[in-house]
Design a protein around this nucleic acid. Structure first.
Lengths: 199, 199, 199, 199
DNA sequence: GATGAATGAGAATTCATTCAT
DNA sequence: CATGAATGAATTCTCATTCAT
């Protein structure tokens, strides 16, 4: 009888290890052996679960996106009114900079590794789809807000894009200079601007 | 001092070559030999001008920042009124996505390569300083606008940070999905929001 | 002793699987896992029957030699007259190129893997002994032919060696260029030459 | 001014080193590092001259074929009469077993590495072409012999194939059991048989 | 006995960097 | 000053083999 393993659990353990290592040292400076050591397994074992270092990054990206989705679902659970959803979303987003800092470092690696437009790249496609999906979600919130009489907005998609880009840009700035601005103040300012824009 | 001029010119040629190559293939997938070939010089010659591949990226980053600065100076030349400056700045910024696309790809490499907070990194410091400097400039515009009675704004720095983060975030999104939004529409929307926020 | 029979059967199945896989991809390009899959057993099970990949090749070589011996025994069954034995042997040998093609590919791997003269190698010893044994058999046929007045031959061993080397060389050439010669024509030519040489 | 190197000479040195190493340990047991050490260069340098280990073997094969050709050209220089050419050729061939022993070991590696019929392989093609070319040469000799009234032969190509296969088979047997037969006796026997066959 | 998950020694290959010319 | 041949440290990935179940 062969050894029985919870493959899904081990996969997650490797991904967590990869996140820790990549976040600390950066993707290219990290060795597969270090990831393996962090996951307390042999380096060959990673290749039982992932095809290559690049594909590990891609899987990690997918894993982080799912985690973020869970995080937002949790933070926004039970909220009904679109303006309140938006408010809480922005608060959660900026709070995540601190809480999920490693995520954002890995995102930088993903951006660099995703390749260029002319290159076919699964990572790139995954990145694009994640943006699209996040925008779709936000569009729905704005549209609901418009329908409910809370918001006025001609171009919900443009607005959603704008808000999310802003969050991503702030994440990037904050990552490279946490002193640059105060997260709470920015949350408030950002919320006020968004509300005024959707007024 | 003709020799000095020559040196400076060759340095620029190498940087331009590096930009082309890095933008097309990404920093880590690019070889020094490819940069040399693009600059039509020998591989070893790069090392007469730059210490290492990493330092070449850092120098390239500085070079690109200077180029961008020139670009904005040119675009905003002669404009006096703060609201018009802001308007033109945003238009120039979004127009640059297309015009300076290679820049943005290299910026992704810089973000990934800049290292982590705990690591000392000249590249990281340069990145942070560039943000600071850009924000300072924008803060001056906003303050001038406030002084001139064009704008109302309690926290110019926060507002400036907000606007620049938004531009960077849009650049990133646009890079990975140029179909996601229309640059002209976004310029308009962005300008309107900014104006309303500073109203 | 049903268990013993079972073991023997499974061993043969593994060897047949190994032959198929090695013949198709070559020894070094074949993985133990592929052999196991072809034998429809688990990877670890092979090691219940063979010590190592190298030893599996050696066992396979032995297995193939035995198969070939059976084949010749069958082809020559009941033939009594030495010239006819020789004739039939040559026909069977060249016919085997097509019929046993996988064997010959594996033989190439054996030659490469058998090691060098200075190295002790069981595979090498087995290879040498197989040649010796084949030659011994052919010498007996020639001697019987001489004794029976069919052949004239001063140095039967030299003649046997010559004939067998010729067969092996032809196998090799045929393997790498099946178009090079027609097997039937070559059989006839070979037979004629041998007969004339032993005339 | 860059370092000037005789690339062709260095290439040959690497090939000679590869031949020594491969012949002693076998292709797969030899490391690139060992070849480099034998050539007294760094292992990276090999890759300046050859694409891969496999391609090094292929180049070595080509190199050895050329060397053999030179050897035969030298041995047969000035000989005019076809029977004498054939006689000398066979003597040279069997003498080469001892003199060029490393060659034959490497040939075994080539046979194993050349791949299977269904696979596209440059090595395989090179192997096949080498056989064809050798046979062509021998066919010319036989045809000249027939034209000159020295030989009788209906199927020169078949005869040539036969003779060369015999030489290759003997090389193989001799490699794995140098005691199996005496080279001089075999030369004489082989020559006699060939002459009788062409009589 | 059978299995296949885990392992880690091992090797090919890459490429930034050096330095003789 | 410029060059590109040479280098070897570094790292990914492979796969024969082991062994817990």
């Amino acid at each position: 009888m062969p050894i029985v393993v919870d493959k899904e659990r081990k996969r997650s353990e490797i991904l967590e290890a990869a996140m820790t290592v990549f976040a600390r040292k950066g993707f290219h400076r990290s060795k597969m052996e270090e990831v393996a050591a962090a996951a307390k397994i042999g380096k060959g074992t990673i290749y039982e679960y992932f095809d290559s270092k690049h594909q590990l990054l891609q899987a990690l990206h997918g894993y982080m996106l799912a985690k973020l989705k869970e995080y937002y679902a949790e933070e926004l659970k039970g909220i009904e009114e679109p303006p309140e959803i938006l408010r809480r979303f922005l608060a959660a987003a900026l709070a995540s900079f601190r809480q999920w800092e490693p995520f954002f470092y890995v995102f930088c690696d993903v951006w660099a590794e995703a390749g260029r437009a002319e290159q076919q790249s699964l990572l790139r496609a995954q990145l694009r789809d994640a943006y699209k999906s996040a925008i779709d979600d936000l569009v729905l919130v704005i549209e609901a807000g418009v329908a409910g009489g809370f918001f006025h907005c001609d171009r919900p998609r443009l607005e959603a894009e704008h808000i999310l880009a802003c969050v991503d840009g702030l994440a990037l700035h904050w990552l490279y200079d946490p002193q640059a601005f105060d997260l709470d103040e920015m949350t408030e300012s950002l919320t006020r601007t968004a509300m005024r824009s959707l007024g």
